[in-house]
Simulated assay, not measured.
Amino acid sequence: MLEHLWYTALALIISSAIALPVGLAVGHTGRGRALAVISSGLVRALPTLGLITLAALFVGIGLTAPMIAFVVLAVPSILAGAYAGVESVSPATTDAAKAQGMSGWQVLIKVEIPLGLPLIIGGLRNATLQVVATATLAAYVGAGGLGRQLFLGLRTQDYPLMLAASLAVILLAIILDACFEFSQRLLRRLLGLV
C-alpha cells in the first residue's frame, strides 16, 4: 500500500509542477483557455493501459512507463481546477486589488489563488482519485503497488487475493477523498465562503 501511495504522490507532484503554473497563468490572463480546455479533454480520452504499453515500448519495463501515463492522466484535472479556481474570483475583487496598487503578480498570489483555492484543491482531488484507481496498472509493466496482488491473483485464479487488493485500493481512494473533502470544507470556512 505504501508503494501504491508513493506512486500516486510522485505522479501528483510531477503533474502539479506541470499543470498548476499553466492553469494559474491561463486563469489569470484568460489567454489560452480554449486550448487548455480542448487539450485537457483530448488527454482524458486516452486509454491509460494503452498509454502505459506504448510508453513501456519506448522506455522499457519499470516505473517510468506507468508514471508517464499517470502524469498524463492527472494533468487535465489539475489544469482545469487551477484555471477554474482563478477564473472564479470576481472581477470586482481583482479590480479592487489593482486599484489598491497591486501588480498583476500580487493579485494572482494574494487574491486569486487564496480565493480560488477550494477549486484548485478540487482539481487535485480529482487527479488523486484517478491516479489511485489506475496505479494498479503499474504492475502490468513490472512495477509494484497493489496491482501486483491483483495481477498475481488473476494469473493464479486466487480470487480472495484479487478481492483483497481491490478492496485495499477502494479503501485507499475513500480515505484520500475524505481527506480532500475535509480540507476543502476547512478552506471554505476559513475563507468565509460557506
Rank of each mutant, 00 (worst) to 15 (best):
M1N: 07
E3L: 08
E3F: 07
E3I: 09
T8M: 14
T8Q: 02
L10C: 06
L10E: 05
L10N: 09
I13K: 03
I13R: 01
S16C: 11
I18F: 07
I18W: 06
I18A: 03
L24I: 10
A25Y: 12
A25N: 02
H28I: 01
H28P: 00
T29L: 04
A34G: 12
A34P: 00
L35N: 04
V37H: 05
I38D: 08
I38A: 15
I38K: 02
S40K: 07
G41E: 10
L42C: 14
L42K: 04
V43D: 01
L51A: 12
T53S: 15
A56L: 09
L57G: 12
L57I: 10
F58W: 15
F58M: 15
V59T: 14
G62I: 15
P66K: 06
P66G: 04
A69G: 11
A69P: 11
V71M: 09
L73V: 11
A74H: 04
A74R: 07
V75G: 03
V75Y: 04
P76C: 11
S77P: 06
I78N: 06
I78L: 06
L79E: 10
L79S: 07
Y83V: 00
Y83E: 09
Y83T: 01
G85F: 05
V86D: 03
E87T: 06
E87V: 00
V89F: 05
T93M: 10
T93V: 15
T93I: 14
D95I: 03
A97S: 08
K98H: 13
K98A: 15
G101V: 05
M102A: 10
S103M: 03
G104I: 05
W105E: 08
V107P: 01
V107S: 00
I109E: 07
V111C: 02
V111Q: 01
V111F: 05
I113K: 02
I113E: 01
I113P: 01
L115M: 11
P118T: 03
L119I: 01
I120E: 00
I121K: 01
I121L: 14
G122E: 00
G122I: 00
G123P: 02
G123Q: 00
L124D: 02
L124M: 11
V132F: 05
A135G: 10
A135V: 09
A138T: 02
A138N: 07
G142C: 05
A143C: 06
G145K: 03
L146E: 07
L150N: 02
L152K: 11
L152S: 14
L154Y: 15
R155M: 14
R155C: 01
R155P: 02
T156C: 04
T156W: 11
Q157E: 11
P160T: 13
P160W: 10
L161Y: 05
L171K: 01
L172V: 08
A173Y: 06
I174P: 01
I175G: 02
D177K: 07
D177I: 03
C179Q: 02
C179P: 03
C179K: 06
F180I: 09
F180E: 08
E181G: 10
F182Y: 15
F182N: 03
F182E: 11
R185G: 13
R185W: 09
R185V: 04
L187K: 00
L187M: 14
L190T: 10
L190Q: 11
L190W: 13
G192N: 11
L193I: 12
